[in-house]
Amino acid sequence: MKNFFRILIILTIVIGSQTNTNAAEKVEYLKTDWSFKGLFGKFDRGALQRGYQVYTEVCSSCHSMKYLSYRNLAEKGGPEFTEAQAKAIAASFEVIDGPNADGEMFTRPGKLSDKFVMPYENVKAAQAANGGAYPPDMSVLVKARGGGVDYIYSLLQGYEDPPAGIVLDEGVYYNKYMYGNKIKMANQLSNGLVEYADGTNSTVEQMSKDVTTFLMWAAEPHLESRHQMGFKAILYLIILTILVYFSMKRIWSRIETEV
């Protein structure tokens, strides 16, 4: 048994050194309570629905979410809009379909099976419209950034006047949490920017938290079932381990050697 603790210690060192390396170049991020952290972590439905609203009304004019479909909005473990709501949301977007019998593309209202409509046709168009910087696709953005949700949450609130001595080019902004502090996205959020359907007060902090929660779900749509299944799986393994341990003791008791 003692050996297993040693193994665990080695494991901790190995993983510890990994996280340390990531931590070495970080600034302290703003902290908030995320409902989806922890063994039983779940998303806050309200936050997801509000976050979707922030995404649609603010972010989606530049950032695509190409891996999400409107049907996801009604799926279990997500914002859980009703099917009717999700259909209405989908129908409010014009989707390019085709070619039709005449070989031409046409637009139609979106369906649940459609992917989120993209703001630009392709990366080049997105770059051209944004001064050469491609607004990254946000489907897996949270997982694609070292600091994860804390980083995105902080970044959205990290706009400041540049310290003396730092000169910013045209179309470049100063952000405390951005790698290198220079960011091509202007500050997007201001208090009261979005009028929340559920009446929540839309402070910058609230909107940042909501939209970050939404992005976390977008990147890990099965997070809730993962947590639930994980708890069951580990509980099961512990029970089986205990049973096997006593079986092993019993079997080895046939000979005088101890296990």
Partner: peptide, 16 residues
């Protein structure tokens, strides 16, 4: 008791 322990272990293992 020994039989029960082994049977339980097998059964739980099979479920997994």
């Amino acid at each position: 008791r020994r039989d029960f322990l082994f049977t339980a272990t097998y059964a739980v293992g099979a479920v997994g």
